[in-house]
Structures are given as structure tokens and as C-alpha cells.
């Protein structure tokens, strides 16, 4: 059952790099990460890769397998033909540090720009009451393991470095939606979604949803509803008229 798999792994750093071919043993039930580990142990001890749980729960081992954003620990070797050459490359949207490891600090910067949960006034710890149906909407988004594959695949930043400054990316627009839909969050997040976090850049191609290893409906359940709330607020003719008459800015 064991066979020699053909792996083509990108190796290099910020200055230069290339694809290198390896032949490495593959056994029944193994995933791409198992083979990367076997490469480390037998042929390339300094091959850099991030990983932690090896069970699809921590979102560390994100990379691109045959050009598709994937978790290496959840990509089964059985999904490829035995003689197929499998390419493993780092996430393209983020700067390479070394081999399969990229600099994902963009994501942590964006996370800091989203105002945190705002606790409701007048409720002490232990007094929070919420219905299951009401928490489920935000709970879906809180399944996110922050693998950043949605950020990696999003063409707004994948092909346009210049958009990174003003676009939080699907993961963090979803965080805005999560807080907006939190039954007890006291903050108002609709206007900032558009003006500060770049929701308008998203043209709902659903690439993020497609690569999400947690199966979160990012586009349908987070981004589109947020766009609708923005539209309601900004383009409702009565609100618009009210704003004109009372000269309120930025409401």
C-alpha cells in the first residue's frame, strides 16, 4: 500500500526560491502534512512549515496544494493519483519568510482595527441571557480557526497589494458581522464596515466560502447581510432625506 509519492515543494526565502522535486513514501490514510514531516525527518531537515494540531482545528498549516488554498493536515493523499506530481507552495497573498512559511502579520494588524465586543450596560457577569437561535448566527462565524485561507484566496488582496491598507479581508469583515449579530453587543458596526474595513471592495464571488475548511458560509451569512445593512442605512431614501435636512454627518 505504501508508494513513492512525487512532491514538488517550493523552497526559498524572501529573496529567491524555486520548486524542488522530492520522492517520498506515502502510506494508507496519510495527509500531505505527513509527507512534509517525512521529508523533514529523512531528506530536508530544515524544511520550514507551520503546523500544530494536525487535526484541522488550529489553522496553522495553510498552504497551496496544486495551487489551491488548503490545510496540509486535512488534504488526504488519497485524493491524488499515485503518479501525480503534487505541488506544495506557500500562500501567495502573504510575503514568504521561508519555504512554506509566510508572514501573516497583515491579519493580526487587521484584527486590531476592529473595535472589540462592547458589553451591554447594566448587565453584571452571570446576568447575560440569550436564546440559542440568536447566538447561532454569530457562533457560525466563531467556528473560524483563523487559517487565513479566505484571506489568501480573496482576489481583492491576492492580486492587489495596494488594497491591503483599506481592506480587512473576508475573515475580518466576518468578525464585524459576528459582532453586529451578537445579541448583546452594544456597538454599532454598520457604517465602519463600509468606511473603515472596506466591505465595498467585496464583489461576492464567494471564493472565500469555497476554501473555508470549516464550511462557514462567509459570503451568504456574513458579507451579504452586512452589505444589506449598509445599503439600508446609507441608501434608504428616508434616512438620506433625514440626514440632509438635519445635516447629520456620517450617521
Amino acid at each position: 500500500m505504501a508508494y513513492q509519492a512525487k512532491l514538488r515543494v517550493w523552497r526559498g526565502d524572501a529573496t529567491a526560491g524555486e520548486l524542488q522535486d522530492f520522492e517520498v513514501e506515502a502510506n494508507e490514510g496519510e495527509v500531505v502534512l505527513d509527507l512534509i514531516h517525512r521529508l523533514q525527518a529523512t531528506q530536508a531537515p530544515d524544511l520550514a512549515v507551520r503546523w500544530n494540531c494536525k487535526a484541522g482545528k488550529c489553522g496553522s498549516c495553510s498552504a497551496e496544494v496544486n495551487g489551491k488554498p488548503k490545510l496540509l493536515c486535512m488534504t488526504r493523499m488519497s485524493t491524488f493519483a499515485e503518479d501525480e506530481v503534487i505541488s506544495v507552495t506557500p500562500m501567495r497573498t502573504f510575503p514568504v519568510i521561508r519555504d512554506l512559511v509566510t508572514d501573516v502579520s497583515y491579519n493580526y494588524t487587521k484584527a486590531r482595527e476592529i473595535p472589540a465586543f462592547t458589553p451591554p450596560e447594566g448587565l453584571e457577569p452571570g446576568e447575560y441571557r440569550m436564546q440559542q437561535v440568536d447566538v447561532e448566527r454569530s457562533q457560525e462565524f466563531r467556528k473560524c480557526i483563523e487559517c487565513f485561507l479566505c484571506q489568501d484566496t480573496c482576489h481583492v488582496i491576492r492580486d492587489h497589494e495596494e488594497n491591503k491598507e483599506s481592506f480587512a479581508g473576508p475573515r475580518f469583515l466576518m468578525r464585524v458581522a459576528e459582532l453586529e449579530m451578537h445579541p448583546l453587543d452594544a456597538g454599532d458596526r454598520v457604517e465602519a464596515a463600509q468606511s473603515a474595513h472596506g466591505l465595498g471592495y467585496c464583489n461576492i464571488t464567494k471564493c472565500c466560502t469555497e476554501v473555508c475548511p470549516e464550511g462557514i458560509q462567509i459570503t451568504d451569512n456574513a458579507l451579504i447581510p452586512m452589505k444589506e445593512r449598509v445599503a439600508d442605512r446609507r441608501y434608504d431614501p428616508i434616512v438620506w432625506l433625514g440626514n440632509k435636512i438635519f445635516k447629520r454627518n456620517g450617521a
Binding site: 457577569p125 441571557r129 440569550m130 436564546q131 440559542q132 447566538v135 457562533q139 466563531r142 453587543d185
Partner: peptide, 13 residues
């Protein structure tokens, strides 16, 4: 919960 955690709920919330 005051930090924003969302645990599963009982029928009375």
C-alpha cells in the same frame, strides 16, 4: 461572556 464569548444556551437563555 463580558469579553464576548458565546456559549450554547439553555431554554431560559
Amino acid at each position: 461572556e463580558t469579553y464576548g464569548a458565546l456559549f450554547d444556551r439553555t431554554p431560559d437563555g
